[in-house]
């Protein structure tokens, strides 16, 4: 499936306060395509989970917001990239209740449940890339 990108913005996420700035930026993009409040809340919450991982485990990184379309639907795509240690066991990280930190371990699997498409790629020693997509 190919998507056309209509709009794009990249935001550096290095401290916790950047997360708020990023959340607001996602909100602006979602409002622009008149995404409903519930879906907005879902993707921003999902983004919030990923940003936390980015800060905690990836040592910060970059977050990209895009407005994409597949020709029929319009949606928001978020891509998070870090150059952290990477995740050795993705399957484990994606299962409910698994956490290396002191969190609930709902972050990654929870975020996946909130969006329409979820993609995670990680190479140990190189970094992790997470992509979220939510249709309007």
């Amino acid at each position: 499936m190919t998507f056309t990108v209509q709009n794009r913005e990249e935001i550096a996420v290095t401290i916790e306060k950047d997360a708020i700035f990023f959340r607001n930026a996602v909100k602006t993009y979602a409002t622009k395509i008149s995404m409903g409040l519930l879906y907005q809340t879902k993707i921003i919450t999902a983004a919030s989970e990923i940003v936390r991982n980015l800060l905690k485990y990836g040592g910060g990184g970059k977050a990209m917001i895009e407005t994409v379309t597949d020709g029929r639907k319009v949606g928001i795509r978020l891509t998070f990239k870090d150059s952290g240690p990477g995740i050795p066991d993705l399957d484990k990280a994606m299962s409910d209740g698994f956490s290396t930190g002191k969190s609930l371990g709902l972050g990654l699997p929870g975020a996946k449940r909130l969006v329409d498409q979820f993609d995670i790629r990680s190479t140990v020693g190189v970094g992790t890339t997470v992509t979220l997509l939510k249709w309007k």
């Binding site: 519930l38 809340t41 879902k42 929870g110 975020a111 449940r113 909130l114």
Partner: peptide
């Protein structure tokens, strides 16, 4: 709690 927040939390599994 706002409706959208409540639904999202349930979906999240909290």
């Amino acid at each position: 709690m706002q409706p959208a927040v409540a639904i999202t939390l349930i979906e999240l599994g909290l």
